[in-house]
């Protein structure tokens, strides 16, 4: 397993690893070191996992060198079953989806699956929240059916409506609010992904398991929500 430490300004280190599983293992290890009061990690203020990298940020004015040194040596084994037990049973979230997205046909072409097979693939394999990013409450879901890997749209949309359910690369996601975006849209949900009045505000927490449920294209249920 390789781990590359890249300089990222005065107060951060970007750690590049081989893949998502390595990122999540290192993320677990760094968070354990931060909460376990490991002195080298005392100044860490933010840890940002992504598809191939983990960004570790220290407080303004703090020295990043101790963290950098500690990161090169920190053991980050894949989570053991004992760790999984300690963290308890994952939180399972069901998300009802109307599979009426504008890119369903394109995804069908790209994957050589019929539209109903795309829906079946998206709903039958559970997804797991790998990390958040892009926008508040935007969770990157990994571990789904590998036949659903599709590239982003070549031209991003200027507005993707809130609740849109999409695919990009190895990930699926739900847009918490309207924003520009380049994901392939399969459908939409009426679930509220982000609400600052709620504790916690994000419906999908790192580690949560997500099951998408096909609730049909019924326009009546749609209009009832508008």
């Amino acid at each position: 397993m390789s781990r590359r430490l890249l300089t990222c300004g005065e107060h951060a280190v970007l750690v590049e690893v081989d893949g998502l599983e390595e990122v999540l293992a290192l993320d677990d290890a760094v968070r354990a070191a931060v909460t376990g009061e490991d002195a080298a990690f005392a100044d860490v203020v933010d840890v940002v996992p992504a598809a191939r990298t983990l960004l570790v940020v220290v407080h303004e004015g703090a020295d990043v060198l101790p963290v950098r040194k500690a990161l090169s040596a920190l053991p980050a084994d894949r989570p053991t079953s004992a760790d999984a037990l300690r963290r308890g049973v994952p939180h399972v979230v069901e998300i009802p989806v109307h599979y009426d997205g504008p890119d369903l046909d394109e995804v069908s072409e790209l994957t050589a699956l019929a539209p109903h097979e795309v829906v079946a693939a998206h709903t039958q394999t559970p997804w797991r929240v790998a990390f958040a990013g892009f926008a508040p409450g935007f969770a990157y879901l990994a571990g789904g059916d590998s036949r659903l890997r599709v590239p982003r749209r070549s031209e991003p949309r200027t507005t993707v409506p809130a609740g849109s359910v999409g695919l990009a690369g190895e990930f699926s996601a739900v847009y918490p609010r309207a924003s520009p975006g380049g994901w392939q849209l399969l459908g939409h949900t009426d679930a509220t992904l982000w609400d600052v009045e709620r504790q916690p505000p994000a419906l999908l927490q790192p580690g949560s398991v997500v099951r998408f449920v096909d609730v049909g294209n019924n326009a009546d249920t749609d209009t009832a929500h508008r």
Binding site: V57, A132, A202
Partner: peptide, 11 residues
Amino acid sequence: RPGLASMGVGR
């Protein structure tokens, strides 16, 4: 808002 990046919230 430092420290909330794991929720997708910037500072």
